[in-house]
Write a protein that binds this DNA or RNA. Structure first.
Lengths: 126, 126
DNA sequence: CCTCCTACGTACCAACAGGTAAGTACCCCA
DNA sequence: TGGGGTACTTACCTGTTGGTACGTAGGAGG
């Protein structure tokens, strides 16, 4: 068997959810798939600048095992595989939305701190 | 210098938020501090069964650097340090709430899957 | 004929996260 | 005099994560 319940018994729901999205690219994969609905392997790879093919497959397989991603294989001559979110994957994405909003706020804070410290009154950002 | 903007420039808000909560105990620390308001080091350690002192200090320092946790040191004879959440830490916790709910759902699903697989033909499907 | 495209699988390796154990300096209690 | 409690720090070791590079099979295009 692979590994049915991923890690040890979870202490709380945050644990269980973070376990599923921890991984360098999982958040981005979720976002890509939610944005575009259906994506092929190479499309995802181009959408995540810097990802290695190995990690992309690995993460996609884990997310499939976790029931977040649906994998549709077409037995065609240039191989074609389409990935999309399952119902649970979409629910997870919705649950991640407020976290994303918090993150955007954090980025904004961080950047204004940088601006304050580096070149105080120099450049206006669009 | 330590490391001002933790990792590379974030691609989206999810990235920035996950960066801040990734770490084996950060979610639990957030939860503990939110539950109790103010906690001392040893109280936190007792509240997170299995955490090592090293990781607890390390995580607390990182969360302090990230502006999530306030660290109040009292110059007393048995040293006393009190930790609490900042405004941003509390906001993060609120943003984590739906994720926690999703996680609880996932745990529930996983457990009922286990039951289904273990004693398969026992219970009728609704 | 040679190369690139598809979507991977595999082997090897470096970096890092996290655990263990010990030390620190001071005080209280028995 | 010894043990325990406070809040750490430091050194060392291991397991996991992720990156690099290469192999695969068939077809299309130059």
């Amino acid at each position: 068997m692979a590994k049915a319940p991923r890690n040890g018994p979870y202490i709380c729901g945050i644990d269980a959810a973070l376990d599923v999205v921890s991984g360098k690219w999982k958040g981005l994969i979720l976002w890509e798939l939610d944005e575009h609905g259906v994506r092929r392997f190479a499309e995802l790879r181009r959408g995540l600048p810097g990802v290695s093919e190995k990690m992309l497959t690995q993460h996609l397989r884990e997310m499939e095992a976790d029931g977040l991603v649906r994998r549709q294989v077409y037995a065609e001559v240039p191989p074609r595989v389409e990935y999309s979110l399952t119902e649970h994957g979409r629910a997870l994405n919705e649950a991640l939305a407020p976290l994303g909003a918090w993150g955007v706020e954090r980025i904004r804070r961080e950047r204004s701190d940088l601006v304050e410290h580096r070149d105080a009154a120099a450049l206006p950002r669009p």
